[in-house]
């Protein structure tokens, strides 16, 4: 089984780190195969940026994501820019404070997305007082909504990836994300 994941947002949100942790958890700890790629260059600074992950039970030959089954959108611009080739019936997770539901509900319905929301940025700011961990809150929501990587592997991958001294905050952010994600359709 091959699953394609796309995470979009804007520069500085930690989208890339989120993708790396997912791929790391899948390959190093769930013992699946995973490839992580990303957009580079001027595009990655300001404006919409994205990272993509392929996870599979078998070796990943073609490494790129062409029609994701999972789409995480952490900005409105990224949603609009990267939604076109997302598969019909895909899982969509948005941060509702950053992606205006009213404007995208038609697309969600038309593409039959399984729609989840996680107010990751607000939770990171209000509950943890640290906006910078919004990406890890979203990671928790991703794990809960998709079940694609195990919770245990995600925790290990977080601990291995975040800067020393921030482990506790990040694990809290992860747990918070597991709690706050909601099915929205």
């Amino acid at each position: 089984m091959r699953t394609e994941i796309r995470i979009g947002g804007f520069g500085g949100q930690g989208i890339l780190m989120c993708g790396i942790i997912i791929a790391k958890a899948a390959s190093l700890y769930d013992h699946k195969f995973a490839v992580q790629t990303q957009s580079y260059g001027p595009e990655a600074r300001g404006g919409a940026s994205r990272t993509e992950v392929v996870i599979s039970d078998q070796e990943v030959d073609y490494p790129k994501v062409d029609s994701p089954e999972i789409f995480v959108a952490m900005s409105h611009e990224a949603f609009l820019k990267y939604v076109d080739d997302v598969k019909d019936g895909a899982i969509l997770i948005t941060d509702p404070d950053l992606v205006d539901e009213n404007e995208i509900i038609d697309i969600i319905n038309k593409k039959n997305f399984k729609y989840y929301t996680s107010d990751a940025t607000k939770q990171a700011q209000d509950t943890l007082g640290l906006k910078i961990v919004a990406n890890i809150v979203m990671l928790g929501s991703f794990v809960k909504a998709t079940g694609l990587i195990s919770e245990e592997s995600a925790r290990k991958a977080i601990l291995e990836s975040v800067p020393p001294g921030t482990e506790e905050k990040n694990i809290k952010a992860f747990e918070l994300g597991m709690d706050v994600v909601k099915k929205a359709n």
Binding site: S27, A34, T37, P63
Partner: peptide, 10 residues
């Protein structure tokens, strides 16, 4: 190439 150089895998 750029893809292999920037891609991450185990």
């Amino acid at each position: 190439d750029e893809i292999v150089g920037h891609m991450r895998e185990k």
